[in-house]
């Protein structure tokens, strides 16, 4: 396959940035999207041009490090991560536009690399059960109905890539935040801090500059792990019930 790539280049955070066009040829359909970018980067390095910087690590769809807005969609045309997207999803002669995630709370670091530390700070605000190492009960002491365990697991599969934010016209982080709040709200271990957790994580989410939710569902539709919109509904319930019965008055 021969392709034209329109890629966002930006030297650093303060640079204005802009699109640049490149050509790549002899791309195999079996290559992953990132391997296609590897080919481009070898080509650029050979010609003495700075390679295109992009985040990636595990390349098996689980670490959440890869990003990329491809032809207007986060992680491209398939509901998967960019590292699991293969060139067989594109056709010969196509022009592919590649941009970084666009959100105030995800400032561009360089080219296609963005800073997602805001997600870490949301988790730090309460995305945990406060237990120290040691001194915990036996793992089978508290039975958890399979249905609940499975549902908590589904919420827990979020990889923190930020596609939900990139897909949302408001750059809202509600799907990300709600997935963690849901997981812990459903499990018996999360009950003690349930209210406080919802209040604190949502307050942090707002202070990071993420937008609000207007229920368009783009986040869930684009989520590579298929995190359900139900989590946002659950988070809203958690939040309201926490606020009306809050101990923090």
């Amino acid at each position: 396959m021969n392709l034209t790539l329109k890629i966002w280049r930006q030297k650093n955070h303060s640079d204005k940035g802009g699109f640049k066009e490149y050509k790549v040829s002899d791309i195999s359909k079996d290559m992953s999207f990132l391997e296609m970018l590897d080919v481009l980067n070898e080509q650029l390095s050979d010609s003495g041009e700075d390679p295109v910087h992009f985040d990636h690590d595990c390349r098996e769809g689980i670490c959440g490090m890869c990003s990329l807005h491809i032809n207007g969609k986060p992680h491209g045309p398939k509901q998967t991560t960019t590292c699991q997207l293969h060139m067989r999803s594109f056709s010969d002669g196509e022009t592919i536009t590649i941009e970084p995630w666009r959100a105030t709370a995800f400032p561009v670091v360089k080219d296609l690399v963005v800073d997602r530390s805001s997600f870490d700070r949301i988790i730090q605000a309460g995305g945990y059960v406060s237990v120290n190492t040691g001194g915990v009960p036996d793992a089978n002491e508290i039975p958890i109905p399979k249905r609940i365990a499975d549902e908590a697991f589904d919420a827990a599969t979020c990889i923190g890539c930020g596609a939900c934010v990139a897909a949302c016209k408001n750059a809202s982080a509600m799907l990300f935040t709600s997935a963690k709040i849901s997981q812990l709200a459903m499990l018996p271990q999360g009950q003690v801090e349930r209210k406080e957790r919802a209040e604190r994580m949502i307050a942090q989410m707002d202070s990071e500059g993420f937008g609000a939710c207007t229920n368009t569902g783009a986040c869930s539709a684009e989520c590579p792990k298929g995190i359900s919109l139900t989590n946002i509904a659950r988070m809203n319930r958690e939040y309201f019930s926490a606020v009306v019965s809050s101990d923090n008055v």
Partner: peptide, 11 residues
């Protein structure tokens, strides 16, 4: 330890 942290193991 992991169960106490809320790790959703298969059940």
């Amino acid at each position: 330890q992991c169960v106490a942290q809320g790790v959703p193991f298969a059940r």
